[in-house]
Write a protein that binds this DNA or RNA. Structure first.
Lengths: 204, 204, 204, 204
DNA sequence: CATGAATGAGACTTCATTCAT
DNA sequence: CATGAATGAAGTCTCATTCAT
């Protein structure tokens, strides 16, 4: 029924709408290609081929290669932050929250490896526009509030939030890199050990 | 006439062999250009101009752009490892050695920012040849021995060295990135705080 | 379902045939765009947008971009000739006719600047088809008859009509260009002076 | 001997100079292609092929297609003005100078048809940069001085120089166009008749 | 050995035209 | 008939590499 209505609607309005799925196809193709060959080897013809679209079609949805890259970059940053904080239990004890966040952060980097690889390749690349360059690691800032609570509960060292956060995130990032290189699976033990290291460092 | 001119030429140029200084000029120019514009924007004409050499001269010393980049990459990796371990006091107590190493590592990333930036841009780029890709983080491995000693002295947690090292190096890297972004100067206090975090995490 | 929707569609659209107004909309849009950006920058998408029509609609009325341009070119040439000769007083004395024609010609180029600009941009362009290339300046030929009369009345030099006409029209064209460049208004004095020059040259 | 010296010089200085002849080759190729196919059909690959140069070579001498076109445009305007005034007899009587100038102007348009065709195709095209657009018809202005003298000698009507000049040049341009279309040869008679028309119009 | 002009493959982008709706 | 998303050929331009000098 839906289809019929749309059919009639299109005839009457002679409308042909941009297909939002195409954007996703283009994004997917871009991520795969960057994962396989790196950002510097990315080219529009390959994206078209990979997405099974004409090369020109990409330009219906994006003004330029640069815009496509920046647009995807923004989208990934946004979704990343959402995912990390989405499953944190409200009102749980501080250490429980911290552990949830830490596990989320790590699993997120593993499960969305392609996406993080793209983001890293883009950072500092000449493709980044002014806005993208300023896109602070929001995920970074989100943890500040939690740390403040930890300090109030006398659980966390009285150090600058930026330093505490950088320490933990740097640790988490490098640990994930290690796992990926060695094609290690992320076990509960690994997550617990990694968190122990972080907890022991920040705890008062 | 051809013979004559070649004769004159060879006479004048006699004994002037490949000039090792030129390689340095080329390396320096490359590092500066990548720092300023990113690896993807690097091109041979610009390197020649920056190094005040003809573009063709670069091909006397390097077979191709790829070889130049990989060659510089190797050299930086080698020198980096050397620098980090060079000033560590032999036979000092474990914690003293650890602190020295940690401080060296951080200061090294700050003082040789251009070099590290280049290395990061290269990693995962399509320029890296097979050998470069395998170039393990030697600096990474060097700390393993020290950690073993720490474990024997019952000072360090009984965890996998790779995990302990990744934790500390990831932390250090991210902390340096934080400083560079905020154009913060590296104070003694900062180094001490950063080390405290690491020490508390690995100590038994 | 296809059949159903087509049935509905045809019912609703019944009797709605090609709309001649649309052709005018397309012509208007084309003239404006060429005036603003030049013929070489003209594109079908822009015409559709300017005419507030879908790009595909243009292809209902014109087989191709080339046909559109040639069609408009022909139409403008035809209307131009009509306008110039439309208001010439029959049976007036020769010099009166000549003056009327001259004034008409000049005012026509000024009032229909957009149209003449388009014609000039098209002439010699690769868009012109064989027929358009041959479209002789009819306005040019129309004056031949009048000059013949002038010669019979012993008012006009005994020169080739083509030369006399080219002289006058070239003069008129360049004078209008001068006015447009300097955004000069066309005064009666200007028209009289311009005609004086032409008259003095052709008069016996 | 010259060649030998240059040979040695090149060896010693390792210099390879841009070849000024290449610019001429590129200009020539451009003029031919525009004459044959019009400005809008001009493309860089064709220029390279016509000039028997690699397409990239054009970009050694010109930053872009636009720069090439504007550069050639300027050069043609400059050379055109030079040619027109170069052969005018100093201190000849006014009418003699006028005739010389007129004949030069016409013959110049005929002999350098390709060049004038290019200039006309460029005028009002979207290729013209700000400077080119302002490039007033210098040839136009040059005649002003002569007309002033004519007025002082009471030979020329007391009209605005711009109007008098536009009248004559417009006439000359259109007459040449007429000849070219009809593949008429420019005879002395033709030049004399054409000048008679102009002289009669401007003379007091 | 040193140079940089010359080259053309390959990248990005535009746009006339088609076609499903 | 009306629409505009989709397409890919063709255009502009870049740049790693070569080679005559």
């Amino acid at each position: 029924m839906r289809a019929l209505t749309e059919y009639i609607f299109h005839y009457l309005c002679a409308l042909k709408l941009k297909d939002p799925d195409k954007i996703d196809l283009i994004y997917k193709a871009t991520l795969k290609l960057v994962k396989d060959n790196g950002l510097a080897a990315l080219n529009m013809a390959a994206i078209g081929k990979e997405a099974k679209l004409g090369m020109g079609t990409i330009y219906v949805y994006f003004k330029s290669k640069e815009e496509l890259i920046n647009s995807l970059f923004h989208q990934l940053k946004r979704m990343n932050t959402e995912r990390i904080y989405s499953t944190v239990t409200p009102d749980a004890p501080f250490r429980v929250n911290m552990k949830e966040l830490f596990d989320n952060y790590i699993m997120n980097r593993v499960d969305y490896f392609e996406e993080h690889f793209f983001v890293e390749q883009c950072s500092n690349s000449h493709f980044m526009d002014a806005e993208s360059r300023q896109l602070d690691e929001e995920a970074f800032h989100g943890v500040f509030g939690l740390l403040e609570r930890g300090k109030k509960e006398l659980l966390v060292k009285d150090m600058d939030n930026a330093i505490l956060t950088a320490h933990m995130m740097g640790s988490a990032n490098e640990l994930v890199t290690l796992c990926m290189k060695q094609q290690m699976e992320i076990t509960k033990t690994f997550l617990d050990e990694a968190f122990t290291l972080c907890w022991d460092s920040i705890k008062r």
